[in-house]
Amino acid sequence: MLTRKQHELICFIDDRLKETGVSPSFEEMKEALDLKSKSGVHRLISALEERQFIRRLPNRARALEVLRMPERGETTKKPARATAPRPAPTPPPAPANDVLEIPLHGRIAAGVPIEALEGQQMLSVPAALLGSGEHYALEVAGDSMVEAGILDGDYALVRRTDAARDGEIVVALIEENEATLKYFRREGAMIRLDPANRSYDPQRYRPDQVRVQGKLAGLLRRY
């Protein structure tokens, strides 16, 4: 027997597939079920998959397929909700590969402002790796963030913002000239940019010397 949340989730996924042919995002599922975190969505999806109600489609970002809907007595009663009458069921279209195109601004390198790289290329990114907001990508150069799992050649997925909190990984533009990916910290009246590599020293600047251009939202690695 399915739990109420499992039943709500499979109905939400089924409705979305019939309406658009595209699986809802984990963020959309979290909000629809009023869950506190995406980990709860993962647990519900895994439970539905184990019971063979849904399956994940291989080689597709975030794509799900409903194999069957619960029968009477197989689930707790779904809470009533006001909806318009549903049309006669029609075969759902095949789930789409949910991929977004975001600007690829090149490699993070000394002497190259982010603005100078805009509009050069686009990078295809699974939508599940991105949250809300506007994003861009940067190719990582060097090994200053290896202890944070960020390697040379990785693509940093960055959400545009000009504000950051202590401990967040940011793209910082130093003196309007040098772009760098580092941990952001405030140290008294100074801004400290910390590498994630014991071979490198922290960098300290006055606030007027540093401009935050985004926060790390995800990482894409090609093999």
Rank of each mutant, 00 (worst) to 15 (best):
R81Q: 10
M69C: 08
L64T: 01
L44A: 03
R56L: 14
I54T: 13
R62K: 11
A47T: 00
S23M: 09
P70V: 06
R62F: 07
L44I: 07
E49T: 11
E74M: 09
K78V: 14
A32K: 06
L48W: 01
E65F: 02
P70K: 10
A80R: 04
P70C: 04
R60N: 10
K77F: 10
R72Y: 13
R68H: 09
L67P: 03
S37G: 02
M69W: 08
S25F: 04
R43A: 08
R43T: 06
R55Y: 13
E28L: 07
R56H: 15
G40A: 04
A80K: 15
L35Y: 04
E49S: 12
I45W: 00
A84D: 14
E50Q: 14
A47P: 01
P85M: 10
R81N: 06
L57Y: 10
G21F: 06
D34R: 05
E28P: 02
I45N: 00
E49R: 08
E50T: 15
A61P: 07
S46H: 15
E71K: 13
H42D: 07
S37R: 01
V22K: 09
R72M: 14
M69D: 06
E74L: 11
R56Y: 14
T83Q: 12
A61R: 03
K30C: 04
S25Y: 10
K77W: 15
E50N: 12
R55S: 12
